[in-house]
Amino acid sequence: MSCVEFFSVIVTKYPEDEDHAPVLEDQAHARLARAQDVCDGDLILAAFDAASHEADYFNDQYPASGFEFSRSCPCGVCIHLADHPGPVVVLADWGGVCDPHPADALILIIPTEERQLRPPSPERSPVNEPLR
């Protein structure tokens, strides 16, 4: 018997406007995961605001490529979680700018095994090219 965890969050439709890159994967495969459970290659779509429990979609989705969190990281982003009382994970690094999240934070992902890795298109930035 498996354990089921329920999350009290609001998952809205991915924004389709000029501020958000189009999602090139099947959004029907989107799943909630705790940041500590995100795997390399999972496509990250959104994090959730702790107060409102609403999805905060990133302007462009990106594949996770996590590494260890350092409270003394000089990136300028990690400092915001340096005093976080619990564990923190870093889901990606964009050339010296980290993406840290509390380990128990909810993240909306498309898991690696569900992704239909496609060749890069002109709309995708080099940061978001599929992992090979």
Rank of each mutant, 00 (worst) to 15 (best):
C3I: 14
E5G: 02
F6A: 12
S8Q: 04
S8A: 04
T12R: 13
K13Q: 13
E18Q: 09
P22E: 02
P22D: 07
D26R: 11
A28I: 13
A28K: 14
H29F: 12
A30V: 00
A30H: 03
L32E: 05
V38L: 08
C39E: 14
C39T: 12
G41E: 03
D42Q: 07
L43I: 09
L43W: 05
L43D: 03
L45A: 01
A46R: 05
A50N: 13
A51N: 09
H53N: 12
E54M: 08
E54W: 04
A55V: 08
A55N: 08
Y57V: 04
N59P: 15
N59M: 14
D60W: 12
Q61Y: 15
Q61I: 06
Y62M: 03
Y62E: 01
F69Y: 15
C75H: 02
G76I: 02
L81D: 00
D83I: 03
G86N: 09
P87F: 08
V89K: 06
L91M: 03
G95N: 13
G96M: 07
V97R: 06
P102Q: 01
L106I: 10
E113M: 11
E114P: 03
R115S: 02
Q116D: 09
R118M: 02
P122R: 08
E123T: 08
R124L: 11
S125N: 09
V127Q: 14
N128Y: 04
L131P: 02
